[in-house]
Design a protein around this nucleic acid. Sequence first.
RNA 1: GGCCCCGUGGUGUAACGGUUAGCACGUCAGGUUUUCAACCUGGUAGCGCGGGUUCGACUCCCGCCGGGGCUACCA
Length: 466
Amino acid sequence: MKVRFAPSPTGALHIGGARTALYNWLAARHGGGQMVLRIEDTDLERSTPENVAQILDALRWLDLDWDEGPISQLGRAEAHAAALRKLLDSGAAYRDSATADDVKAWKVEHGSDRGYRGTPSEDGSGAIRLRVPDDGDTVVDDLIRGEVRFPNRSYDDFVIARGDGSVLYNFAVAVDDADMGITEVIRGDDHLSNTPKQLMVFEALGIEPPRYAHVPLLHGPDGKKLSKRHGAASVQELRDAGYLPEAIRNYVALLGWGPGDDETLLTTAELIERFRPEDVGRSSAVFDEKKLRWMNGRYMRDMPIEDYRSAVRSFVDAETAGRPLNEERFRFGCEIVQEKAQTLQEVWPLIRFLFEPPVQDDKAWRKVMKGDAERVLTEVEAVLIDLPQGEEGPNRDGFSIGAVQAVLEPLPEKLDLGAGKVFQPIRVAITGTTISPGIFESVAALGREETLARVEAARSKLRDQD
RNA sequence: GGCCCCGUGGUGUAACGGUUAGCACGUCAGGUUUUCAACCUGGUAGCGCGGGUUCGACUCCCGCCGGGGCUACCA
């Protein structure tokens, strides 16, 4: 068994392409087969080396590896030329001097349900067309759709190579799939109507075609086909947004395919074991980032803490421009936020107070720093100062989570205030905002010196405010 | 216009002739007497429409409607 993923490098790999790549990869790994990566770069106008690099980068990041390639379709010009000669010699294809306008005119004359039929040019010039029979159907025996019949007469004698001999997609694909011994073609639904053309090329070449599985396209929220210029997130964008490759693999696999039971969270090993192309659904799906976020959060929480830390690291580096951070605090910060964030991007805002002064959030300040806030902070400062020094805690200053909790937790009762009235002012004092990890954890992480300094600063600001 | 594909809640899916139409995300309400997130509990919402076939249709057939793809000397 051998499959191929054959993107055309006209843009970055987006979520739809990633899914096609994943399905091919899963099919290959499931069936103990091979996957070929082929770059369909015969469109000189739109293909660029930058796009090729981006696609490879995206696949590697997703951890989808291939066994052969990347093979440039452009680099197979000789093989294409040989196949072309063969068809020309056998009469299966011919040169036709008709232009696109000529074909249009022909159709006006013969009816729109009728494919164009040309005549060989006398001087041997013009594009090369494949002869298409007038009668009969070409049937695609699709793994997902079943038998789909296409009337031959509705197809043109289509162009397989330009006048200069450069080949076109439907021809190159068939020749390449044949030469590479592809047994299963898993690709987007948008190719279904093109499949008869490719089948005709196989037929003309006298080669057994592969099996086809046309997976439904991914659509945008507006129901239109997802594409680069249509709001489709590229893999790189998803990476930058803080999603994990394993979460993306899991989520994307479920767009159009399900394991058959109610399982939602599936490891890659489970995906490989359970995926079969024939089980892919027939209707198109819409990419829903909300669910991806949820799933990503699940994966983040389940990560070993070391992996979590290194995944967070690159995002933090981007925020701090590489400025080195207090390692101990970073470690501890990661531990206390692992349960909270749904994307890697959300981590830094939650722990930045450990490395930078409190953020300026006037709204949060006004909301919380009023009424009994000053009295609360005075008391907080007092009990924290009394906390004995020691080696405990992330800063080795006696500020362990437990010690901090032991003195702060009784405060609401002691001051006869609601818990929120006590803890929110502390939170705003040390982080500047109302959103942070748990308050005891946050205080412990910040440590004695810095916590007391910030509480004192908040107190004096409150005094000035009066 | 022609050829082809598709149609279960807002989203992804399950059930494939007989179920109170299941699960997940979302959403709403409550809980966790510290925020946010997470977590727990409960609620919400669906078989596009119309004809058949059948004792019985989400499931089979036909029509319609809706969505999509292809129709290039693009891929």
